[in-house]
Design a binder for these strands. Structure first.
Lengths: 198, 198
DNA sequence: ATTATAGTTGACCGGTCGGTCTAGTCAAGT
DNA sequence: ACTTGACTAGACCGACCGGTCAACTATAAT
């Protein structure tokens, strides 16, 4: 049973890494099984389909994101706006590290799947939309706090949060397209300066 | 020979529509041939591979984009900043029209392919990067003009151009993810207000 | 020791993939 | 009339796709 959890976890991690590095369509179940050192039968014992696995992968991604990025950026030591600036810095570090290891700038795992699959798989689209919605909510909360402590004023908080998320996703996509993490370093800090006025 | 050009054009248009509506991986050569009313033999007479066809599709997309969007938005009647605002409006209209017809918000054709294929096919990545580079150049030129006529000042023009492009791409991706063109209407106008200060 | 159950194995399925190839049509050039 | 070469037709290729299945093993409760 311990071994079983282990197997499931190995499948999940292999799938996460492969799908992020390549894409949903380019990664087959067989490749995931090979990478995880697991046979097809075991795969389908734990996951009913490739689609369901991918939903789990998205959860896994978001969990890690919250643990590794949000947890650090959104500590109380920083002012709200500085949390957003810290987020920008962490985004760069993360992309830079991946680029150093893999040779490719991989962008945002959610944005990648959204772009590829939104029109093809409604369940996947909805899942990604939900995750991005939660990210937006985090930014919104942070902006509310910024307003509350007088760090900013006269802004449309919900719309500004959406704009910041859009800007961040766009930067990740451009960085992937140029295969250059420095794009993130150059552009991301300005995310914290976006203001949609009331 | 006229019929031949016609065949090539039909293949190109079918591929453009199908790849935009679905994705590169989800659209097979057979589907493109069916849609174009052409047999495989003809397809491979005009295009050596699916990859080469896609490069041509990207050219086709960019050509249409310049004809339909840039040509209208960048007319001399408008001030530079108003050209960018017009661009935002056209982006919404375009996404809205597609959504009404297809039931899906398809986002940016270049961004879609970039997200899906950048890590998998260097030629495709490079092509998309080039196209987006030209878009960035258009925005940069417009910002230069805005500076020249005193509409804005104290901005880092090249970086602001990049930031505007990133913001636009991010909005298109979010709209696709939410399957809602209204995201474009809500967020895109603020593109013209982005300023990266010197 | 027996039984039930969770997990594993790998052969196998029909279908689709991008791409090849041979045979043939057709119009223009000589 | 004959040749040439662009274009079309569609059968065919091996590889791979997601998914199924029956048989097997390991574990733990009774």
């Amino acid at each position: 049973m311990n071994a079983a959890i282990n197997t499931r976890q190995r499948i999940l991690r292999s799938a996460r890494d492969l799908i992020y590095a390549r894409s949903y369509s380019e990664v087959g179940v067989a490749a995931i099984c090979d990478s995880a050192g697991v046979k097809k039968g075991s795969f389908y014992h734990f996951f009913p389909s490739k689609q369901e696995l991918t939903l789990a992968v998205l959860d896994e991604f978001f969990l890690e994101f919250k643990e590794q990025i949000f947890a650090e950026a959104f500590s109380e030591r920083l002012t709200p706006l500085n949390r957003l600036r810290r987020l920008a810095e962490l985004a760069y570090r993360f992309q830079k590290e991946i680029a150093d290891v893999t040779g490719h700038t991989l962008g945002c795992p959610f944005g990648n799947i959204a772009a590829e699959m939104s029109t093809q798989d409604e369940k996947l689209r909805h899942k990604v939309a939900t995750v991005l919605g939660q990210m937006e909510a985090h930014i919104r909360d942070t902006l509310e706090a910024a307003v509350a402590c007088g760090e900013v004023n006269n802004i449309d908080v919900p719309t500004t949060a959406k704009a910041m998320l859009a800007y961040a996703e766009g930067i990740m996509l451009l960085a992937k397209t140029r295969n250059d993490p420095e794009v993130v370093r150059e552009l991301m800090p300005a995310m914290a300066d976006i203001r949609i006025r009331t």
